[in-house]
Simulated scan of single mutants.
Amino acid sequence: MAQDVASGGLVVGVDGSAAALAALRWSAAKARLLHTHVLAVHAWLPSGYLRAPYARVLERPTPDQDRARAAATLEENVAQLLRTHPDADVVSLLREGPAAAVLLRHAQDALFLALGRKPRTDVTQPALGPVARACVRLAACPVVTVPEPPPGAEESGLPWLRDDWAGSLERA
């Protein structure tokens, strides 16, 4: 797990969502096939900047609390990945800054950037969120969006997340 985070690999945006976890699992399976590592990136911003200046000070988390919450989110997603893919070669990276900018910076030399995609519930809205749209538009590498599994689906319920599917590619 001690790869140089600046070189190659597969970069995955992690935000604590089921869709991000699906992207992380998909990328771990692909990394095994490609003999590379996964760089799980979580970007965070101090939430105090997003609050109204007249909000009660006691209700504003400190930047240290925001950073700790972000670190816990990243750690939990990586732990969930390792429960189903214990041999995954994954490096965690926590960075302060806007999500799209952080992901694009770390994906410059990546084989691809993987992002989770939430189900589209309103056809009048864009299929991708603002971070994914910025990454698709500006990334120097291919961007893959992995759909969130449907409610009630088993953890590896998507065909490309099942270990037997990845194994069949290795045998081919």
Rank of each mutant, 00 (worst) to 15 (best):
A52F: 07
A23V: 07
E75F: 01
P46D: 09
R56Y: 13
A79D: 11
L82Q: 14
A28E: 03
A72K: 00
S47P: 00
V14C: 11
V41K: 12
A68T: 12
R67V: 03
W26G: 08
V14G: 04
D64S: 13
P86V: 09
A23L: 06
D66N: 07
D64R: 14
R56K: 13
R32T: 04
L74S: 02
A31G: 10
G8H: 15
A79F: 00
H37D: 10
K30H: 10
A72I: 00
R67Q: 15
A88M: 10
D64K: 12
Q65F: 12
A22F: 02
T62L: 15
S92P: 03
A79C: 02
L82P: 03
L39F: 06
A79W: 01
S27H: 03
V78R: 01
A70Q: 10
A72N: 05
D66H: 04
G48F: 07
V57E: 15
A43V: 10
E59L: 14
L10A: 14
R83V: 09
K30I: 04
V90G: 04
G9W: 15
P61A: 12
A40C: 10
H35S: 08
L81E: 01
A72P: 02
R67P: 01
L58F: 15
S17T: 07
L58C: 15
A52K: 08
G8K: 15
G48N: 04
A72Y: 00
A29M: 03
A18E: 14
G13R: 01
L93N: 07
A68I: 05
G16H: 00
W26K: 03
T84I: 13
A18M: 04
Y49S: 04
A40I: 02
P63M: 08
L93A: 14
L24V: 02
S92C: 03
H42C: 08
L33N: 13
N77W: 00
W26S: 08
P53A: 12
A88D: 02
N77E: 08
P63Q: 06
T73W: 00
W26P: 04
L74I: 00
A40F: 08
T36P: 10
L33W: 08
V38I: 12
E76D: 05
A31R: 03
N77H: 03
Q80M: 01
A22M: 03
A28L: 05
G8N: 15
T36R: 09
R67D: 01
T73E: 00
V14S: 04
P46Y: 04
Y54W: 14
V41F: 05
S92G: 11
T36Y: 11
A79H: 07
P86S: 11
R51K: 12
G48W: 10
A68W: 07
L10D: 13
G13L: 06
A23F: 04
P86N: 09
V57T: 14
R25G: 08
